[in-house]
Computed example of a mutant assay.
Amino acid sequence: MKAPVSALLATCMASACSAVPDAPAPSAAAGAVREVEFACDGGQSVTVRFHPDERAVLVRNNEEIVLRQQVSGSGFIYGNGPTTIRGKGEDLTVEIGRMAPIRCRAA
C-alpha cells in the first residue's frame, strides 16, 4: 500500500527540522551556552560557543564570528555566507571564504 503524499511530506519535514548539533558538550544546565575548544591543523586553535537560540560564535585569532544554524542531515552546520563550520562528534571543519578548509578536533 502506498503512503499518502501528505504523510510522507510531514515525515520528511519533521526529520529535516530536527537537526540538533551533536558537538561535544561539557556538562551544563539545559539551555546554557556550550563552549568547546578545538585544536586544528597547523597548530591553530578555535573556540565555538553553541547557543541555545540556534546560533554559534566562532572565535578564531581573537575575532568573533556569529553563525546561524543550518539544516544538516547528520552532525551540525552553522554559517553566515563566507564562513561555515560543520562537524560531527569531536570533529570540526572551518571554511572561511576561499581559504583551504581547516580541520579541527575537540581539545
Results as ranks from 00 to 15, higher is better:
residue 25 A to T: 13
residue 67 L to W: 05
residue 45 S to W: 04
residue 94 V to D: 04
residue 79 G to N: 03
residue 99 M to R: 03
residue 77 I to Q: 09
residue 15 S to G: 03
residue 67 L to S: 08
residue 49 R to Y: 01
residue 25 A to C: 11
residue 96 I to M: 11
residue 52 P to H: 04
residue 100 A to Y: 01
residue 61 N to S: 11
residue 17 C to D: 14
residue 95 E to P: 00
residue 95 E to G: 08
residue 17 C to N: 15
residue 77 I to L: 13
residue 69 Q to V: 09
residue 88 K to R: 12
residue 92 L to E: 01
residue 38 F to G: 04
residue 52 P to A: 06
residue 55 R to H: 14
residue 25 A to K: 12
residue 77 I to W: 06
residue 76 F to P: 08
residue 45 S to C: 09
residue 88 K to L: 07
residue 75 G to T: 07
residue 34 R to Q: 13
residue 48 V to F: 02
residue 69 Q to P: 06
residue 7 A to D: 15
residue 33 V to P: 09
residue 93 T to K: 03
residue 5 V to A: 10
residue 42 G to M: 02
residue 16 A to C: 07
residue 36 V to S: 07
residue 4 P to E: 03
residue 28 A to D: 00
residue 57 V to H: 08
residue 68 R to Q: 04
residue 96 I to P: 04
residue 57 V to P: 14
residue 11 T to Q: 12
residue 14 A to E: 15
residue 62 N to M: 10
residue 72 S to T: 15
residue 80 N to P: 06
residue 21 P to V: 11
residue 103 R to V: 11
residue 37 E to M: 02
residue 30 A to C: 05
residue 98 R to Q: 09
residue 57 V to T: 15
residue 32 A to I: 00
residue 70 Q to A: 11
residue 15 S to W: 06
residue 26 P to C: 07
residue 94 V to S: 05
residue 107 A to V: 11
residue 5 V to Q: 05
residue 25 A to L: 07
residue 13 M to N: 15
residue 63 E to M: 13
residue 10 A to Y: 01
residue 96 I to W: 02
residue 2 K to D: 10
residue 33 V to I: 15
residue 100 A to I: 05
residue 69 Q to T: 08
residue 93 T to G: 06
residue 52 P to R: 05
residue 46 V to E: 00
residue 69 Q to E: 12
residue 99 M to Y: 00
residue 40 C to W: 05
residue 32 A to M: 00
residue 22 D to E: 08
residue 51 H to G: 07
residue 41 D to F: 04
residue 26 P to K: 10
residue 22 D to L: 04
residue 30 A to P: 05
residue 100 A to T: 12
residue 72 S to A: 15
residue 83 T to D: 06
residue 27 S to Y: 07
residue 38 F to T: 08
residue 29 A to G: 10
residue 81 G to K: 01
residue 16 A to Q: 04
residue 36 V to Q: 09
residue 99 M to G: 03
residue 82 P to F: 00
residue 53 D to I: 09
residue 71 V to R: 12
residue 67 L to A: 07
residue 80 N to H: 03
residue 50 F to G: 00
residue 83 T to E: 03
residue 70 Q to L: 05
residue 32 A to H: 01
residue 102 I to Q: 13
